[in-house]
């Protein structure tokens, strides 16, 4: 339960309330991680929260994309290069990217859910030829809140990915689709029985997307969701992150819809 000191190597604002911190241990190498895993990040004297790893930085750092919503996340978003924070982990289950080899792949993100999914897409394009069609569909509140716009454009241009974005509230310059991310499922091409899907976003969005994919014939066990519950420890001892039989810090955050679907359908479970 003792954090490891990490130095903030760089800080990049992504949008008004969100920054990406590149973190590296004060001494020693960065740990390995799998796409979808998270760490517990500690802001001195304020608290510790779970944050997904959103990528590997150029110098091997661990990237974390953090939205300021409360005391700890706000403190972390204000961290400056050179500051020291505490990190434990990586923890939790991962998106089985390798298991999607030979299949069509659908990556569906809502809002900040694109952060952990970015590590999925980066792995997919690192071995592009192993996969069939790859579609990345992204929903965001407004064009201004879209995460990683430049990287999305690069994926679209360079790697034969079908990248589509929809917004809830368009501005007059927005040329693209408007509405929920599930609307984009109509606009992408995939063979449901030979598809793996990776989904992350608000719970309602994930359930809508997963239900839609399963209704089209994607096997529920190949629809992976990243679930979010309160976490105080990350190692299965605080009890907060329970979802029925699951301790989401150990058995999740990534859970397939065959397992999660029935549990999420129970109100206030």
């Amino acid at each position: 339960m003792t954090p490891v000191p990490y130095r903030v190597r760089s800080r990049r604002p992504d949008r008004a309330d969100t920054v990406t911190l590149a973190l590296e241990p004060v001494t020693g190498p960065c740990p390995r991680f799998l796409p979808g895993q998270f760490t517990m990040i500690y802001a001195r004297g304020v608290g510790e929260i779970p944050i997904s790893i959103s990528g590997r930085g150029r110098t091997g750092t661990l990237l974390h994309t953090i939205r300021a919503v409360g005391a700890v996340s706000r403190a972390l978003c204000l961290a400056r290069p050179g500051d020291v924070v505490g990190v434990r982990g990586p923890y939790g289950t991962a998106f089985d990217v390798a298991g999607a080899a030979g299949l069509d792949v659908v990556v569906a993100a809502g809002g900040l859910g694109l952060a952990p999914l970015r590590t999925v897409v980066r792995r997919l394009i690192a071995h592009r030829s192993r996969y069939r069609r790859i579609s990345v569909i992204v929903g965001t509140r407004t064009p201004m809140t879209l995460m990683y716009p430049r990287e999305l454009a690069r994926w679209r241009a360079a790697y034969d990915l079908d990248v589509q974005v929809t917004v809830d509230h368009p501005d007059h310059a927005w040329p693209g689709p408007v509405g929920l991310v599930t609307k984009l499922i109509d606009r992408i091409v995939f063979e449901p029985r030979r598809t793996a899907a990776f989904v992350c976003g608000p719970e309602v969005m994930m359930r809508a997307a997963a239900d839609d994919l399963v209704a089209r014939g994607v096997p529920a066990r190949r629809v992976a969701l990243s679930l979010e519950r309160t976490m105080k420890c990350g190692v299965g001892r605080c009890g907060h992150c329970q979802l029925g039989p699951l301790l989401l810090c150990l058995d999740g955050p990534v859970v397939d819809y065959e397992r999660a679907g029935g549990l999420l359908a129970v109100k206030e479970l």
Partner: peptide, 21 residues
Amino acid sequence: CFCSTVEDGTGLTGDVAERTE
């Protein structure tokens, strides 16, 4: 029953921060 939470604080002098379960 084992569930716990964690409280954070810094001492009066501010040079030590503590995590208490």
